[in-house]
Design a protein around this nucleic acid. Sequence first.
DNA 1: TTGAAAGCGCTAACAG
DNA 2: CTGTTAGCGCTTTCAA
Lengths: 337, 337
Amino acid sequence: MPEAKSPNRYTLRDVARRAGVSLGTASKALNKSGTLRSETRDKVLLAANELGFRPNDLAQALHRGQSFTVGLISNDSFGRFTMPIMEGLETVLHEAGIALFMCNATDDPEREKRHIDQLLGKRVDGLVFTGRRADRRPAPGLALGNLPVLYVFSQSDEPDAACLLPDDEGGARLATEHLLALGRTRIAHVTGPEDFEAVRLRRRGYEASLSQVDPTLILHGPWSEAWGREAATRLLALPNRPDAIFAGNDQIARGIVETLRDKAIAVPDDIAVIGFDNWSVMAEASRPQISSIDMNLKSLGEEAGHRLIRMIRGESQGGTSRLPCTLVPRASTTTTP
Amino acid sequence: MPEAKSPNRYTLRDVARRAGVSLGTASKALNKSGTLRSETRDKVLLAANELGFRPNDLAQALHRGQSFTVGLISNDSFGRFTMPIMEGLETVLHEAGIALFMCNATDDPEREKRHIDQLLGKRVDGLVFTGRRADRRPAPGLALGNLPVLYVFSQSDEPDAACLLPDDEGGARLATEHLLALGRTRIAHVTGPEDFEAVRLRRRGYEASLSQVDPTLILHGPWSEAWGREAATRLLALPNRPDAIFAGNDQIARGIVETLRDKAIAVPDDIAVIGFDNWSVMAEASRPQISSIDMNLKSLGEEAGHRLIRMIRGESQGGTSRLPCTLVPRASTTTTP
DNA sequence: TTGAAAGCGCTAACAG
DNA sequence: CTGTTAGCGCTTTCAA
């Protein structure tokens, strides 16, 4: 019934026939394996070229027991954070000749299970999980045997799972120390919901950088500009106003900056502001533009690719590692840009 | 050398052995093909279950000449527009048991060629191209035979290529007519660079909705908030100010709204503003929130999936189709939200 | 109703 | 140095 045929009609046998050699010889020539006379090899390569021959990876994979594919399961419905990760991952894997299956599970365990099932059927060489929230997530229910599994921007409950995350705490320290270096003494922290591990880690980095923390300067709320505006208003009403604000993300930072602008409070002179994520459409559209912490997600994706390749080779084992963040200064913390 | 083994060690032969039947019988039982005694079938299914048997798609594909995979090649480096398209596409394909290879070409022809090559090697059943700019793009250089190829949010030069796009012109008409329905008479259009086909189409829709167009009210510039701010300033300096502005995207719209806010011009009472893209982080963070036109990209992706499946079945042929946009009214055009 | 066998396209071990 | 052959795991005639 399936009449559909791949565009490449030619098989190795066709190449061999055209080159006037045997099947095995053609295979050796194309895989540079065994020892052939260079004349014969050239004959085969020529024939292959003329025919536009392209080996059938399916057959290769079937034989070798390795498919040169990996699956990526995202729980962020391909959101803003997943994108650069995917990009870095795909680049590195592609260079290694590995193709990437994309699956979107959107935090639906049933969907995720079906995806894993499908990927196992396709005999992927590895699996990458990624998710919007870098919180602990349950290990996938299915038996994966010893299939390499990597969690990126996401974590597993299994003790020695391989996880790759940005160093949120370090990033927060970067931000806070940047503000301290400006000579600021009362630094507020307006951030996201406390049930995000990233929020807790960033807060910890912030607190660790200060000689003493003032709890009235720490405000949790949703990840939105509206919250940034509200929090700014609250901070301004304080008897002892902050002279700097470290925001948990760039949307909050932008809300803060806009409110300060509305009230004609100079940024950064009166109050310096720094965000997190370095989301350029936010940070650069704001007036003034917002300094931020970049999580280097593309590098995270690239590192994930390298690590997964090592795991597939059987070289590397699990464990959590965190990649450093980078400070991106802009006008909201620097008087002369 | 490749010692890597898939987690599923069990083969159909193992299942057959365990069920005490022949290989062929096991296959028939699992594929519900042929006619077997229900007793035998159950025996096989039981054995398969106990073993956690999962057929090897590679072997199936090799035999059937159909891989149940398709490739998606993005030129948007997995950007904001590609995401929802991917999401819709993946959902529909997954339901049909088809897995999606993700490739990022980023407008690099060489990279794109390598990706296509790899995908052909994997014997994909179809190919989807997508790109940030819905402009004409050259057909891929390689011979694809009669492999189904679909362009989504992107186009090909081949005359009868299958293309799926949002109806930009219709969307622009929706926006303009919405403003007209508010009783506005001087409607400006602040939009993106003229070399985008989408910009030209939206402008055409805008012009088509007006009884007479005033060229001084049409401004082209970059896709940024900064441009929105500048354009707004220019429009306000006009002797005969507009009473409504249709922006080419939500970033421009937001720049406009902010400038109006700065100058204490009431939105929508003095000047109504509508955007395009319905990018909620922009539209909903603005004060007031911005009405916009939604391109329904997720639906576009879903429709792409359905269409591609039809093409794979050999059912459907090429041609360009455009899917309708939707008006999403918010406070920037409606006095009582 | 079930079993045996051929073959999808390729690789690798073994002969010649 | 090159040809032959036996599979990888599955589906599908064709016999029994």
